[in-house]
Amino acid sequence: MIIKGRAVIIPDANVNTDVLYPGPYLNIDDPEQMKLYLFEGLDPSLRDRLGGRTVLVVGHNFGGGSSREHVPLAMKAWGIGAVIGRSFARIFYRNCINLGLPAIACTEAVDAAAHDSKIRIVAEEGKVEVDGSSFPTSPLPPFVIKMIQGGGLVEYVRRRLEEESEK
């Protein structure tokens, strides 16, 4: 699986889901509406960098705090293809994987990237390229790759239910 896109950078450590998608907008359940409030508590002007194929490049312990799936749902609605970070908080990481949005820890790639850097990711191999330079990272666990390639948890559960009903 190869993912390409322009880098959009959020450099800070411990960026939480409250600033990525503030509480007042939690009464929205449609990703196309959620999209309008992504990064609202952090820097709304970051949204101007989105659109087209992008890859989010983030700092240490990204996505801590609330379990609100509004964050990765809004990211997907913007067409963000992957998130590369120094490290991720657990629930945010799970949410990405479940939605089929690769979240990859690769400190060297984060160091190398600037806004609009060209990013290319070969998820199976755990390879991240920034403006042509290649940075190895540990490949995603096979389970995670299967989940992402299979279209995320929705597809996984749908197939399981189908198989069970055929039995």
Binding site: S67, R68, E69, P72, I91, R94, N95, N98, L99, F143, M147, G152, L153, V154, Y156, V157, R160, L161
Partner: peptide
């Protein structure tokens, strides 16, 4: 704590990864 898609999986199958 889990996100909503995870919870949907739990509601449907009674299990999560």
């Amino acid at each position: 704590g889990l996100g909503s898609t995870d919870i949907a999986g739990c509601l449907a199958l009674g299990e999560f990864w």
